[in-house]
Simulated assay, not measured.
Amino acid sequence: METTGYFASILIGISLGLIGGGGSILTVPVLVYLFALDTVLATTYSLFVVGSTSLVGSFSYFKKGLIDLKTAIYFGLPSIATVFLTRQFLLPAIPEKVIYLDNFLLTRSILLMVIFAVLMVFAAYSMIKSDKENEETQAKNTTLWVMLQGAAVGVVTGLIGAGGGFLIIPALVNLLKLPIKTAIGTSLMIIAVNSLAGFGFSLGQQQIQWLFLFSVTTLAIVGIFIGSYLSTKIEGKKLKPAFGWFVLVMGVYILMKEIVLK
């Protein structure tokens, strides 16, 4: 399983390099199911892996002028604030045993994985639906809406270790009308800042296995170079629906595993 986990770590980077998101959708399940990590620890590791990989991936977009720094600030500042509040107060406030109902014990780990799976299903829908459907969502005050989206992404990032690219890119493309390549580059920058900030806020709360963490991160970085290269050969719009179906299957599998098969 560990060998499969290391191979999947490369796929995390490939996903980020190709479509500017989706890497975090893979990271937590890989760490929990293939490396058998505790869910809360997996969310912390995910923040470092996704943040570091996204940071490396954003460099090439920055050099090409494909990062909108103003948008990154509008989106990023509310995100960092809610990441901090979530990691420091909301996550520790969730009890280890949440509720016991009809011979089923809902633990914190199960709750986090269920939340993650539900978000995966929503993310899959966002990736599968056509661009024409995406364009129907508009906001009157785009700056305020983007800041609110940033705050929401921060909660997601802090709670389950997901960078939130599946939420960021639709907001940048549909609300601010950024070109897809600029949206991907800006998304990578926002994910990097959010995730690494979240990891920094978590230091001291858990014991970190740095060698293992660096190994997974290095493979993910290799993957993002592969993904960035492939993005010049393959149109991201064609890959999104296919990846969306994969994410949907993963989300349903996690829901089945955590609730039905427990």
Rank of each mutant, 00 (worst) to 15 (best):
L261S: 06
E136Q: 15
S215M: 09
T3P: 05
L105M: 14
M113W: 04
G244E: 05
F59V: 14
L31C: 10
G154P: 10
G161M: 07
I10C: 11
S109F: 02
V83A: 02
I259C: 09
S215F: 06
I190Q: 10
T43K: 02
V98S: 09
E136C: 01
I80T: 09
G65K: 10
F116H: 02
L178Y: 03
E258R: 07
V193F: 05
F48E: 00
V260C: 01
Y61M: 07
F243C: 10
L203H: 00
V118I: 15
V83E: 08
D38N: 15
L41Y: 07
Q206E: 14
Q206C: 00
V28R: 04
V247F: 09
L112R: 08
L112E: 02
S46L: 06
V50K: 03
V252M: 12
V56T: 11
Y125M: 11
S228K: 15
G13T: 07
L47A: 11
V247D: 03
E136P: 03
F59N: 06
L148V: 15
N174V: 00
Y125G: 06
F48W: 03
S130N: 12
F199W: 13
T157M: 13
S24E: 06
Y100I: 11
I224H: 02
A151L: 12
T27R: 03
G22C: 03
I191W: 05
L176M: 13
S202T: 08
G150D: 03
A81V: 15
T4I: 15
S15M: 12
